[in-house]
Design a binder for these strands. Structure first.
Length: 476
RNA sequence: GUGGCUAUAGUUUAGUGGUAAAACUGCGGUUUGUGGUACCGCUAUCGAGAGUUCGAUUCUCUCUAGCCACCCCA
């Protein structure tokens, strides 16, 4: 016991632990154990904090999903010439009410709205398109060579009821193109969304529809309502409400009794004018050319009011993976810039939900027994004693410049434990530096498979390691 | 926002009206210079609060959170 104490004395943490374990032992031994328990409870009785509802931490274990998502988005953006846009989380409420439209769920019940200390009503952004439009107008981007292409990777906020893959703070990666009316812009958006998932290794398909112009939609709406009104007695209660409130949503109904009514319902495509129809057909031609799998979906409406012409959503191309419906979606919003006070500017955009994508990707990989490969660790640097530890940190830094992917743990003092860690990581080599090596200015390189060790000069460590790893120095 | 299900160590799961079991992980140890094994030890106010009870982790209620369906969306 005394030996033990002596050993650990210099370390505060260890002392505490010993004290604690001694306490516990005595408390167990004595019948007055209850008292002991009480004191320890009050000792530890500090409040712990939980997350707010619908909020989540993104932990290191999911870095393997988040990192490639950011990299993919960033690569696609630079390839397709999108510039990074970063806007504030807080904006004026009006921005979203005006762009998304009153009557949409997002505006009516999901926005985080509060008054700040100046009594100004502010809103935490529920999406970014409106902010992008604001930025486009505010910074006079119509004076730049068109199209202006912007992308973002950012958190959004919606006060919805949480579910798996559905959070109150969630991330979207999105792309917006301003000043490009041609169907090729629509196709480009869909291509980017498609590639984003392709690069992640998740097969997706596109559901697509056209909403035409507001005028065309209005005529269609009348026709739709007329049709549904004639079948009113067959409808579910929900749909009777929709008939008045939001007729476009009638087509979404999943009630069995409404299905037969839905089958013969007029389809919006037949009510589009020649121009709108042409635009849509051209988008589809592009998709055929690009071999992007898509489904025409005459019931696809989308819940934000600003869309015109093309609308689309991205789904996992595997019905068994329940990823909370669409992974992402987008469409054209040719009238929004003008509506928001800018010059008439055609625009198209897409937003992808990242938490949902991670969820879908996890499920997909699990089903197909796939794993995301990490960059393998090439060597473990083990150290023994204070002197060695000091040298080690320096050597670790040198190895970073040398481009050797290493692991280490300065927290551990025993060589045994460190080699155990090295073994768990399945590194091919361990670099061992102890008291003796510090004095000699050397290091041991241990081949973890064969156990063969070699002593090398610390200065030659990087080239020797690289040669052993099958890497060659750039100089040679 | 509506309805339903669930809540036990870091994780996954046992279990009981008499304060709890296991696996994995983590930390420490089996002389601080050598790994893959083995062994030992430590780690849970049984989601929070109230009620019924001699006694509740177990029964009841409230709350909270998560999940599922709907609504909607990403």
């Amino acid at each position: 016991m005394s030996k033990k104490e002596k050993k650990v004395m210099p370390k505060k943490v260890e002392v505490k632990k010993i004290v604690k374990s001694v306490k516990e032992k005595t408390s167990k031994a004595t019948p007055a154990g209850k008292q002991e328990k009480d004191t320890s409870a009050s000792e530890r009785g500090k409040k712990t904090y939980n997350l707010l509802r619908g909020m989540h931490d993104i932990l290191p274990k999911d870095e393997k999903y988040w990192k490639p998502m950011y990299q993919n988005a960033s690569n696609l953006a630079s390839h397709f010439q999108f510039g990074r846009l970063e806007t504030p989380i807080l904006e004026e409420i009006g921005l979203f009410v005006r762009s998304l439209g009153k009557g949409t769920d997002v505006v009516d019940k999901e926005m985080y709205v509060f008054e700040d200390k100046d009594g100004v009503k502010v809103c935490m952004r529920p999406e970014l398109t409106a902010a992008a439009v604001r930025a486009y107008i505010m910074h006079g981007m119509w004076n730049m060579p068109q199209p202006v292409k912007l992308w973002y990777f950012a958190p959004m906020f919606r006060h919805d009821r949480p579910q798996a893959g559905r959070y109150r703070q969630f991330h979207q990666v999105g792309f917006e193109t301003f000043g490009h009316a041609d169907p090729s812009a629509d196709a480009e958006m869909i291509l980017i969304a498609f590639n984003f998932y392709k690069d992640l290794g998740l097969p997706v398909e596109i559901h697509i529809n056209s909403l035409g112009t507001p005028a065309e939609r209005a005529t269609y709406k009348i026709e739709l309502v007329n049709y549904y009104r004639s079948k009113r007695s067959y409808l579910c209660e929900e749909c009777r409400n929709r008939l008045v409130k939001n007729p476009m949503r009638l087509l979404d109904c999943k009630e069995e009794r409404c299905q037969s009514v839905k089958e013969d319902a007029p389809q919006i495509i037949n009510w589009l004018g020649v121009e709108s129809k042409n635009h849509f057909m051209k988008v589809l031609e592009y998709l055929d050319e690009l071999s992007i799998p898509y489904q025409l979906d005459s019931t696809l409406v989308r819940g934000l009011n600003y869309y015109t012409h093309t609308v689309f959503e991205v789904y996992v191309a595997d019905a068994e993976i329940s990823a909370q419906s669409a992974l992402g979606g987008g469409g054209r919003y040719d009238l929004l810039v003008e509506e928001m006070g800018g010059r008439p500017t055609p625009a198209v955009g897409v937003a992808l939900g990242l938490e949902r994508s991670v969820l879908a990707l996890k499920q997909y990989n699990e089903k197909h027994h796939l794993e995301i490969k990490k960059v393998p660790t090439e060597a473990f640097v083990a150290q023994l004693g204070d002197e060695a530890r000091r040298i080690t940190l320096k050597i670790i830094d040198e190895l970073r410049f040398g481009g050797v992917k290493i692991a280490f743990n300065l927290c551990k003092t025993s060589l045994k434990t460190q080699l155990e860690l090295a073994d768990n990581l399945k590194v091919p080599f361990a670099v061992i530096i102890g008291q003796k090596e510090v004095q000699d200015g050397t290091a041991i390189i241990r081949d973890m498979e064969s156990g063969i060790q070699e002593i090398v000069d610390q200065k030659k460590l990087i080239p020797v390691l690289k040669r052993k790893l099958g890497k060659f120095d750039d100089k040679k």
